[in-house]
Design a protein around this nucleic acid. Sequence first.
DNA 1: AGGGTACAATGACATAAGTCAAAATCCTGG
DNA 2: CCAGGATTTTGACTTATGTCATTGTACCCT
Lengths: 238, 238
Amino acid sequence: MNLHDLKSVCGHCTIRELCLPAGLSDEEVHLLDQHMNHRQAVPKGEYLYRVGDPFRSLFAVSSGFFKTVLLHEDGRGQITGFQMMGELLGLEAIHSDHHVCDAIALEDSAVCAIPFDQFEQLGQVMANLRHRFNKDLSREIVREHHVMMLLGSMRSEERLANFLIDLADRHAERHQSSVEMTLRMTREDIGSYLGLKLETVSRLLSRFHDEGVLEVRGRRVRILDRDALALRRTETHN
Amino acid sequence: MNLHDLKSVCGHCTIRELCLPAGLSDEEVHLLDQHMNHRQAVPKGEYLYRVGDPFRSLFAVSSGFFKTVLLHEDGRGQITGFQMMGELLGLEAIHSDHHVCDAIALEDSAVCAIPFDQFEQLGQVMANLRHRFNKDLSREIVREHHVMMLLGSMRSEERLANFLIDLADRHAERHQSSVEMTLRMTREDIGSYLGLKLETVSRLLSRFHDEGVLEVRGRRVRILDRDALALRRTETHN
DNA sequence: AGGGTACAATGACATAAGTCAAAATCCTGG
DNA sequence: CCAGGATTTTGACTTATGTCATTGTACCCT
């Protein structure tokens, strides 16, 4: 990487406004920038961290796609989220100073790391950053509330419809097509996240396909009728 | 209330170490204290806040018991948590400056409120408080991860066993009996939280009762065999 | 005190999603 | 470019939990 001629990596980052530096002034971004370890590669299939690892840094996904997996003693695992460009990884570890889930790259990816103690120090002088970070943490809580709603109160079709729309929206935020997407995760991963078995996910995708809502070819998905899909997110769509 | 002769309410609070001031020095607690509105009563059944309310203050439960409910357009609601003494309410609202769920007192309760803008200002001078609060937010994320695991991967019996043990443990932290408890919420509330119908909850409680694990009389629950209950939290307990 | 409304328990039955199994397809590395 | 494992699809069948209905209980509130 040839970065030494750039004053600030974050400042020139295309996803700056989706990432930690969002809403900070140029000077603030510059300051933050100096504490970060930019663009570390994480090849597909590799662990960014594992349960039990000591917590040192927060990570921002710079490119690629991750999943976070919570392991249960009896082998069962629950996927707690999928992370794309600009999203933070490691927030769960602040509480106990240790990671409590695994983070795995689902495609060749890169992350920017910031040592958390330095990050907290920066809070001393950057009220903006403090506020910003509180919002990030709060947003994660809200996101998880929605997953709880999904898992606790919705039927399988609604869960999948919500999942697909959410993915599409996040692609759109990143200026990627929200119509044609390639799923980075397996059917089993989707099932784990949605509290369903992979067969159920597969059947639902086939159904959406047959009904003309989606075009599904393996991991390639095209949303043919966004409105129809959106309707299926809720019960009352007679 | 007659508090003017106390230097610091938080400093004398019995649950200080479970609440926001945990880990702060006496001076820090005192400073924090001056920004708080202590012990506001919230009668049973009342809303502490509702979806859409502007977010002004964070709340710490000073006594009593709350539930937070996420509402879905089609009337469905999902309970996202139950809060006891020392636990924080309102964290979900930081992100959007508006509350995104309802908080309802399940018994006559009291809360301490702290205006969030003042709280964030305090972060400027109190690194401890910042760190502490980051941990609180992270803990909430971890807690929700566990709920996701519960809702996504566990069967009904395991869900209820986990719920009961969690409640018992939180009672114990508060120096209340972890053997005999009175449930503050209805069967329907429990069901909502666990992604089950109230009939299922009722049947499971009856089953635990019949099997000698619990003694259940309405909302009064006594844990007769903690080990047996703990075993039922996981699949593999042949 | 007692009458009424909310809450809880239980039974009979329905169904959404899980399980098991087999075949089809897709990738990937040599 | 092919072989072999991983992933996906689909079908037949099972089951855990939901649904509906009834009765019982408890707790307010006047």
